[in-house]
Design a protein around this nucleic acid. Structure first.
Lengths: 231, 231
DNA sequence: CGCGCGGTTGATCAACCTCAACCCGCGTGG
DNA sequence: CCACGCGGGTTGAGGTTGATCAACCGCGCG
């Protein structure tokens, strides 16, 4: 699994630096739970995330929502859209972004081929991540999805010395991302705790006690042995 | 829903044309069910599809497969990967492609910013499509997925004068794409036929008799009225 | 204090999976 | 020519997973 929006931090950050010679876009601060843009909004800019976490989502005609990616520092938002944003984008935590007007993007591509190549790789990475996510939610069980998710998120967060990390999103967000209901997330989280595989000091602070077992699970290890050993 | 790999035909085809001034890559013919590349292969080229249909898939550690996209004329393959192909790519029908060595891609970006911009839009589109697919398989019922799929595919195929079209892939491919089992596809297809919403002259030739109802379904219309009216 | 929000837990149910039988068309080889 | 096997598809019976509906907890806040 991958966090679809989250790409390799650093890559486009460099881009911003290179860009600095021209006009470095101003830093914009966005409080948690505010929108950066909505689905259907006129796409006037792309955004580079400088700090914090955002979620990207789509709303289906029947009102169901699907989170198509989480993104943090280094990600570029809005490249998947054309004249209108095809995703909504909401800050999960407080967030800082730089907006690059789309006009500038075209201009950048024209002038600096190297930079264009970097951007291209960035989107390519996001595409790869989206495809990995597709594979995950299309072919995995709830348990596998959650194990996978915890492992992936923990890699992207700053791990504390005691091997714990902040889970930035709500249960409902996790559910909408993984294509499950929040009750299912809640149940499985409880179960993981009961088995001693994870422990949560608060609702949003998590520690993977048995990373090995989670990895086994994520890999499809339906080994009864695992279940037996800790139930 | 979208066919993830399938992007707007014509866009990159133009690219190839523009490219022609330099060296137009040779046309390669690939018979149905042959691979164009495998997951993990060294990524030496990207490919432009000139005719036919291919499927892009990933294999999970536990052996499950997920088709992450179908692609036909005009699509560019391999942009989502880095040093190794992260998807396998197999021809569904006989296919013609042009291979562009990755070295050339970088070179193209450096030299022709306009072209780089076009490529960027192409990947962006594929990313958007993958996200749409994510939303579809994460948040829809089997019935909705199938209705959606049939509508999307029919738009991408050449529609015959009698409003029918060739479904290029097997039941199993549809299942792997939609995150379902092939038995489920089979059942739902039969049901759609029984209700008179579609008709199939052969296993791979389909006609949407009641496009309106399929659209209603795809949009989440769980209206009992629909079910009632034709059962 | 009452309320709302986010989360947990329980009971029930249906959608979809699983396993298995079976059909059909086709190519192969006795 | 027919028997056979095989690949792809369909259909049925029964089981599981995860959705649904609903009650309830804890907390922060006006």
């Amino acid at each position: 699994m991958c966090i679809a929006g989250g790409a390799i931090p650093g890559l486009i950050v460099n881009q911003s630096h290179a860009d600095a010679g021209v006009v470095r876009p101003a830093l914009k601060s966005i409080p948690a739970h505010d929108h950066i843009f909505f689905e259907g909004d006129n796409r006037d800019s792309i955004y580079v995330v400088e700090s914090g976490w955002v979620k990207l989502y789509r709303t289906l005609v029947d009102g169901q929502r699907q989170i198509v990616g989480f993104a943090n520092t280094g990600s570029v938002l809005g490249l998947e859209s054309d004249v209108e944003y095809s995703n909504g984008c909401e800050a999960i935590t407080a967030v800082q972004v730089r907006a690059i007007p789309i006009g500038r993007v075209a201009e950048i591509c024209m002038r600096d081929g190297k930079l264009a190549g970097q951007l291209l790789r960035q989107v390519g990475r996001q595409l790869g991540a989206a495809q990995a996510q597709l594979a995950a939610i299309g072919a995995q069980s709830a348990e596998q999805k959650l194990a996978n998710f915890l492992l992936t998120i923990s890699d992207l967060c700053d791990i504390q010395p005691d091997d714990s990390f902040d889970l930035p999103m709500r249960r409902g967000d996790m559910a909408e991302f993984l294509g499950l209901r929040l009750e299912t997330i809640s149940r499985k989280m409880s179960e993981f705790q009961r088995r001693g595989w994870i422990s949560m000091t608060s609702l949003y602070h998590c520690r993977l006690q048995r990373r090995d077992i989670l990895e086994e699970l994520a890999a499809g290890g339906q080994l009864e042995s695992i279940h037996a050993c800790a139930s």
